[in-house]
């Protein structure tokens, strides 16, 4: 690990102005906030992250979960994954989020990882994590080792010729289906970014993963009020039974009224370069009868844009099964 200055922030404003000195908030940032540390420390040990300054933000007052006036939820960036998963209102109104959080990582890691940190979780692509191999995300322009290499676990949606790295988060998939708002405070004040706009596709700049700018601090995530009558579910498929990233996952929020689907939000994990919202699937569900045929049609539509690599073609079938089963489960 490279040497760095360690400091502790007790005031968001000071933390933001210190971090604003960084040339980027993306790959290569000189200043990093540390909260749970579960991604940052991991990558610093691998020399993938090499900040010269690490600012401990754990003491900032951002660890509360509050109800919003419209019946939604405002989640502090420092709320730990385990606390959020077990929050009574999350369990009641946003089951998909609780389930997604509990399917991720381990009990220990969920006690550490925060809401804000999980939004910024980095890919598990083995070539991104190994500084001896070319990687456009880590070293722009160096090439993608994964396309010709070990790509079984990598993305089939949202890829480019420069990067096929998967977004590994479970939480982000649920937040995407819930249409969460990310609240960011930066040098120019606060802004609210819909989660669908928060993550960037790799394109020809895979080193840029989010809209985060130097100095930006995620302070909260806002969940809109639950859709009336909607039920939600998260299903994660992987090789072993626990403590592993998804090969494919699905977060679904569905409302059925008068025998027809009146509200459908679909997101998938383990298959996309970002948490993957599927408007194709939502369109295929909207107004239809909630039956196996509808679900299978939606699943096919969701994976229609997929571009598999040499080893991960199976993810098309697997993700379709995952989505179909998640939909069957949520309406059962």
């Amino acid at each position: 690990m490279e040497p760095f200055v360690f400091s502790r922030a007790t005031d968001p404003g000071k933390a933001i102005s210190a971090a604003a000195k960084s040339s980027t908030a993306q790959q290569g940032a000189e200043v990093r906030f540390v909260a749970g540390g579960t991604t940052l420390l991991d990558l610093m040990k691998l020399n993938v992250e090499r900040p010269t300054q690490v600012i401990d933000i754990n003491h900032l007052p951002l660890a509360d979960v509050e109800r919003t006036s419209d019946g939604g939820l405002k989640i502090g960036a420092l709320v730990r994954n385990s606390d959020l998963a077990h929050h009574p209102q999350v369990q009641r109104d946003y089951a998909v989020l609780s389930q997604a959080l509990l399917s991720g990582a381990s009990g220990q890691l969920r006690n550490m990882a925060t809401t804000g940190g999980n939004l910024l979780q980095r890919t598990r692509c083995v070539y991104f994590r190994d500084t001896n191999m070319p990687c456009n995300k880590r070293e722009p322009g160096s090439g993608c080792s994964a396309i010709e290499g070990f790509n079984r676990t990598l993305a089939i949606l949202g890829t480019s010729e420069h990067c096929i790295a998967t977004n590994p988060s479970d939480m982000n998939v649920a937040l995407t289906a819930l249409e969460a708002i990310v609240v960011i405070r930066g040098t120019a004040g606060e802004r609210r970014v819909p989660i669908g706009e928060f993550f960037l596709l790799p394109g020809d700049t895979p080193q840029r993963e989010t809209v985060m700018m130097p100095g930006d601090l995620i302070t909260h995530v806002i969940l809109p009020p639950p859709h009336p009558g909607a039920r939600s579910h998260y299903l994660k498929l992987r090789d072993r039974a626990s403590y592993e990233f998804a090969l494919a996952s699905a977060a679904v929020v569905i409302a059925v009224e008068g025998g027809k689907i009146t509200h459908a939000r679909v997101a998938m994990g383990g298959v996309g370069t970002k948490p993957w919202r599927s408007p194709e699937a939502e369109q295929a569900l909207q107004g239809q009868l909630p039956n196996e045929h509808t679900f299978a049609t939606a699943a096919v539509a969701a994976l229609h844009p997929a571009k598999p690599q040499s080893q991960n073609g199976f993810k098309v079938d697997l993700a379709q099964r995952c989505l179909t089963h998640a939909l069957s489960t949520v309406v059962a």
Partner: peptide, 18 residues
């Protein structure tokens, strides 16, 4: 305040302006 609890070589950067 923004409390420095450590002074290492990289403090140089902060002192002279990053």
């Amino acid at each position: 305040d923004f409390v420095e609890i450590q002074l290492g070589r990289r403090n140089f950067l902060q002192i002279v302006g990053m």
